[in-house]
């Protein structure tokens, strides 16, 4: 036994996060993930159309329970995610630094911002209905109330560019969707999926019911069109649809989504210029809500 021998690190096997479990891709295949300088970081599962299909099934199954959970409880769960993420700050800082090619200090700040974003949306869960809904003073003897409800299953193309895209950007598109009771199937940033796959580990230990968030790594051009055309997906967030053409381009995905009239959030005009550290506002929070208006007569 040599006293000078260095310890061999344990590599992490990255897996998908679907239905609260960590499956390998049904394809059994992986692809290489590198840092911004091309250095190999890890192998990520090559999620396929069938993985996307399974994830939609898991997401749909989770809708009833998650949307039926009290807003207060959803807030607690989202806050728990923030707690868990904070506890693994260093790990995520390293992954973000490698994914985005930023320095350690900047990466840590982006992780902190991601933690804070969970906290921001945790607080929104039981307030959004008051902001987005309300009583309508109709001209008649009726009680009339508009309430926002989750749209259902949201397909999310995680950001693939912009400041802080790999974790903060991801959180900025996932958290608002689930805060209001939707469930999501996320196509992680194809070239930088590791923070997303690690986030699955955080979510799995945060009292978040299985299936509420499903994370897939793989080719966006495979996964995104599957989500866009899937008849049991209600909405699409195309934040990461930056391909100028081909099946993963925003126009193609939006056109496919039109077949079932999915609600679509288009990518920014210039996704690479997007600053995910900017205050998010309520845009995404309100995008995956349906307004239901209920009338009832008032009489004796």
């Amino acid at each position: 036994m040599s006293e000078t021998a260095t310890r061999i690190d344990i590599f992490k096997t990255y897996k998908l996060y679907v239905g609260g479990k960590f499956p390998r891709s049904e394809s059994g295949r992986v692809y290489e993930v590198t840092d911004t300088k091309g250095q190999w970081l890890a192998n990520a599962p090559l999620g396929t159309r069938k993985d996307a299909r399974d994830a939609v099934v898991a997401a749909r199954a989770a809708v009833k329970g998650w949307s039926g959970t009290t807003a207060y409880n959803r807030g607690q769960v989202l806050y728990r995610v923030a707690e868990m993420l904070q506890g693994r700050r260093e790990q995520f800082a390293a992954e973000v630094a490698a994914a985005e090619g930023v320095g350690a200090k900047r990466a840590a700040a982006l992780v902190d911002a991601a933690v804070d974003r969970w906290v921001w949306y945790a607080g929104w869960t039981d307030k959004v209905a008051q902001v987005a809904g309300g009583a309508n003073p109709v001209a008649g003897p009726f009680f009339n109330l508009s309430v926002p409800e989750p749209t259902g299953v949201v397909g999310v193309l995680a950001p693939r560019a912009g400041q802080g895209f790999s974790l903060l950007g991801l959180v900025s598109v996932v958290a608002p969707a689930i805060a209001t009771g939707n469930t999501v199937v996320v196509a992680a940033a194809e070239r930088a999926p590791l923070p997303a796959l690690s986030l699955g580990e955080v979510l799995a230990t945060s009292d978040l019911p299985g299936g509420v968030v499903n994370l897939l790594s793989g080719r966006t051009a495979d996964i995104a069109p599957t989500l866009a055309s899937h008849q049991d997906v209600n909405a699409l967030d195309l934040a990461g649809a930056i391909d100028p053409e081909g099946p993963g381009a925003a126009a193609a995905l939006e056109a496919a989504a039109a077949d079932t009239l999915k609600r679509v959030v288009r990518p920014a005009a210039d996704p690479s210029a997007e600053d995910w550290t900017a205050a998010p506002g309520t845009g995404r929070l309100l995008s995956f809500l349906e307004t239901k208006t209920v009338w009832h007569p008032m009489g004796i």
Binding site: S146, T291, T293
Partner: peptide, 12 residues
């Protein structure tokens, strides 16, 4: 509920 086809400009 207990009515139908009611419309009002204030009601989404």
């Amino acid at each position: 509920a207990n009515t139908f086809n009611k419309f009002d400009p204030t009601s989404p």
